[in-house]
Design a protein around this nucleic acid. Structure first.
Length: 775
DNA sequence: CCGGGCATCCTTTTT
DNA sequence: GGATGCCCGG
């Protein structure tokens, strides 16, 4: 590393980098070179004799962690950098918990539940407690539990907290405490932790095992935390515990960019840091290197409407730049078209590449209109966030096998795959198994292993045994030190999943097959890439699973620099920057969201979100809103967002006509910025469908089958006595005549002609009942 | 027991 | 418009 690294910094940046011991708070405005400071500071620490093994650096996203690692490597070289502990809160804690799992009674291969897994456990529990999931919405219940854990509250404490009980009573949901308790028990029994547990259990571990605390306090002598404004109480307490021995804590944050309170983050953590740690050195990074004056001034002006901030004045030496283009369209589809057209225009006019553009929206659901318009214009794009690769059904199914092999305590995942592919283990069998497992207080898996003993018979027993044997064969492979890829291949073959998807020639089937292949490839890549840190040399299944559970699709981009327009939510864009940004959907009830306008705090968070959105842009910023848009399938009208009124008029250009609002059938020929513009605009308005009234009648289809009222004395007859030629009555189809019988004695199928209900039908007599009216 | 078809909810934002 | 849940027919 060269000695000049300090000279590339401005005054406050250098002050931050050179502070080595004692608490440090860096208030880093948007685009003020925060990552540069963090990475340079790590270099500086090492330069001054700090051991890389003693540095812990925590971020919120994999992306941020990855970037930090890469930048440190660039300064230090990879041999030294690999000894640093850089990762997300969740991944670092998962690793530590894995090492200490047995102390908490967990297997070291514990499963990590994502929120879908968690909600499905909650549904099971609601069912068991005989609670109505219409009233106890899994989403809501999960949110309460999550909030409790983020505030380090156990089920016991939850149940005895007066304020919380009042709240739940008032909402008429008094059982949430019990659900939480049962949920926690079930997760433990399953050997599984959800995302929040990774923080909560980490806290408990440090709190209740002093020797563990001491070990890690000693190991992590220097701690750095990125995006400190987004930490929640659990993270806060963990950091406090870890840092207590040496207080070499460096936090970086910007209160103006705190946008995660819905996840339990409290802005108080950063506002109070100075009070928590005596002699905190505070450094403010106020020079913005990213944006034009126009962009920055708009951002500053808007955020000025928030109260109670850390005082700072963000400024820039950059050029004034173009005004912010504010564009109104009639509909969401037109908004999509506007953006795609403008991208095409800007590419020509200002020689941009696709990768220079980013479309930012408030909710994932908004992506559709932009996808459609970009596709029509043949502009390559990629959506970040939304349903990630690992949340796809086929991927989750496949991974469930691997998870079960790794941890048979995991009832949730066993249930997911026990009948996939179909092997004749149905709902009845699963329920019976659950009851047995509960009654005997043994794992679900053990009931399956001892199925014969528990009275399962015939085909069911055979199917269960086959399933158990198969899983055990995979486990044997784990024992024999086969790596994750070998086992995944075996799973794909033995289960028949790969073959089944291969034979499915529908479009979706094809996509699923490709996804599975991609998954297998990624597992292969995992096993073949040498690990950077000495602690994780093996390429075991367990290691693999642990890693991917915390992966969101953001990290999945090997094509980081591929030339595509990026689409994402504003939340996902935090920390990123783009030459040209489209900030779309600036409408009341969408942005700010109708969910977040009830309190001042909520509204201020929305405003901070807008601030984040604006400050992503380097040189050009387009802001758009639609007069009306489709929501849940019908057209709604929205007022322009109140944030638009907060933007200073002198930096706004409302006259921009768009890259040419084209006529709806324009397709390949994009007619922007030329003399046809007027025509195009007119046409566009006219071609709006007449559904714009907002009323859409949904015609009710007539029932195909005429409803037959069964005879009052209807009693099904024994299928064994039925023969062709008999006249019969069906509860739905009415009267008919049997024309043929087939099937073995235990599964007879009658072909019956029902004159009043569409003619000939095949009736499986085991399930559908017939009464004989004439022999 | 299983799969298809309809009805119903939905929407913040993410590790 | 889209995913999940439930019901019913085979």
């Amino acid at each position: 590393m060269n000695d000049n690294y300090l000279s590339e910094l401005n005054e406050p940046q250098r002050a931050a980098v050179m502070h080595i011991n004692g608490p440090l708070m860096i208030v880093a405005g948007a685009g003020s070179g925060k990552t540069k400071v963090l990475t340079t500071r790590i270099a500086h620490l090492l330069r001054n004799g700090v051991d890389a093994f003693n540095i812990l650096s925590l971020t919120f996203t994999n992306k941020a962690a990855k970037e930090m690692k890469e930048r440190v490597e660039r300064i230090l070289g990879s041999s030294e950098a690999r000894n640093l502990y850089i990762g997300t809160f969740h991944s670092v804690f998962a690793r530590l918990l894995r090492a200490e799992a047995t102390k908490l009674g967990y297997p070291s291969d514990f499963t990590i539940y994502d929120s879908d897994d968690a909600k499905s456990v909650i549904k099971t529990i609601l069912h068991e407690l005989n609670l109505d999931d219409k009233h106890y919405k899994p989403n809501l219940v999960y949110g309460r539990i999550s909030a409790a854990k983020n505030n380090l509250m156990s089920p016991e404490e939850y149940k005895h907290d007066h304020a919380i009980q009042q709240e739940d009573m008032r909402a008429n949901r008094p059982m949430i405490g019990h659900i939480y308790e049962a949920y926690a028990k079930r997760c433990f029994k399953n050997g599984a932790m959800d995302f929040d547990d990774l923080l909560y259990k980490m806290y408990l571990l440090l709190k209740h095992f002093p020797e563990v605390l001491h070990k890690y306090q000693h190991k992590f002598k220097y701690i750095m935390i990125d995006e400190y404004q987004d930490t929640n109480p659990a993270q806060y307490e963990i950091i406090k515990l870890l840092g207590a021995a040496h207080e070499n804590i460096c936090v970086v944050g910007d209160d103006a960019q705190s946008i995660y309170s819905f996840r339990g983050a409290t802005i108080q953590n950063i506002l109070q840091f100075e009070k928590d740690y005596e002699d905190t050195k505070v450094v403010k990074l106020e020079q913005n290197y990213r944006s034009t004056k126009s962009i920055l001034n708009v951002a500053n002006e808007v955020i000025g409407n928030n109260k109670g901030q850390i005082e700072k004045a963000l400024w820039t030496d950059n050029i004034e730049g173009e005004k912010i283009k504010l564009v109104r369209t009639m509909t969401d589809n037109e908004e999509g078209k506007f953006v795609a057209d403008t991208i095409a225009e800007q590419k020509l006019r200002n020689h941009y590449n696709n990768r220079d553009f980013c479309i930012l929206y408030r909710t994932n659901a908004q992506s559709r209109s932009f996808e459609e318009s970009l596709r029509r214009m043949n502009i390559a794009y990629r959506i970040f966030g939304g349903i990630s690769f690992y949340q796809r059904k086929e991927i989750k199914d496949f991974l469930s096998y691997l998870r079960v092999v790794s941890n048979t305590r995991d009832e949730e995942n066993i249930k997911r795959i026990i009948n996939y592919p179909i092997r004749g283990i149905g709902k009845t069998t699963i329920e019976k198994t659950m009851v047995l497992a509960n009654d005997q207080d043994i794992p679900f898996w053990e009931v399956l292993v001892r199925a014969r003993e528990f009275g399962f018979k015939g085909g069911t027993l055979e199917a269960i045994d086959g399933f158990v044997t198969m899983i055990q064969s995979f486990q044997a492979m784990v024992q024999q030190q086969h790596n994750a890829y070998d086992i995944a291949i075996a799973v794909g073959k033995s289960t028949g999943i790969v073959k089944e998807l291969f034979n499915d020639k529908t479009t979706e089937g094809l996509a699923r097959y490709e996804n599975i292949q991609e998954l297998l490839n990624s597992i292969k890549e995992f096993t073949e890439t040498p690990t950077e840190d000495g602690e994780l040399l093996e390429k075991s299944l367990g290691t693999y699973l642990q890693q991917i559970s915390l992966l969101t699709d953001a990290d999945n981009g090997s094509d980081e620099n591929s030339d595509v327009v990026k689409l994402m939510t504003i939340h996902a864009a935090k920390g990123l920057e783009f030459p040209v940004v489209f900030n779309v959907g600036l409408e009341e009830s969408l942005f700010p969201s109708s969910m977040s306008i009830n309190t001042r705090e909520e509204l201020e968070e929305e405003r901070r979100l807008f601030y984040v959105a604006v400050t992503r842009a380097k040189t050009r910023l387009f802001i758009s809103y639609a007069n009306s848009r489709y929501r849940f399938g019908n057209l709604v009208q929205n007022e322009p967002s109140r944030f638009l009124d907060e933007m200073p008029e002198k930096y706004i250009d409302r006259s921009y006509a768009g890259g040419g609002v084209r006529n709806a059938f324009g397709g390949s020929n994009s007619g922007w910025g030329n003399s046809n513009n007027m025509f195009d605009r007119k046409k566009t308005v006219v071609t709006q469908p007449p559904t714009a009234t907002g009323v859409r009648s949904t015609p009710k289809p007539m029932p195909v089958v005429s409803t037959h009222v069964p005879s009052p004395n209807f009693t099904p007859d024994d299928p064994a006595t039925m023969e062709a030629g008999m006249e019969v009555e069906h509860q739905k189809f009415g009267f008919g005549t049997i024309t043929a019988m087939e099937g073995a004695s235990h599964n007879r199928i009658a072909t019956v002609v029902f004159p009043k209900a569409g003619g000939e039908k095949k009736i499986m007599l085991n399930y559908a009942k017939l009464m004989i009216t004439k022999r």
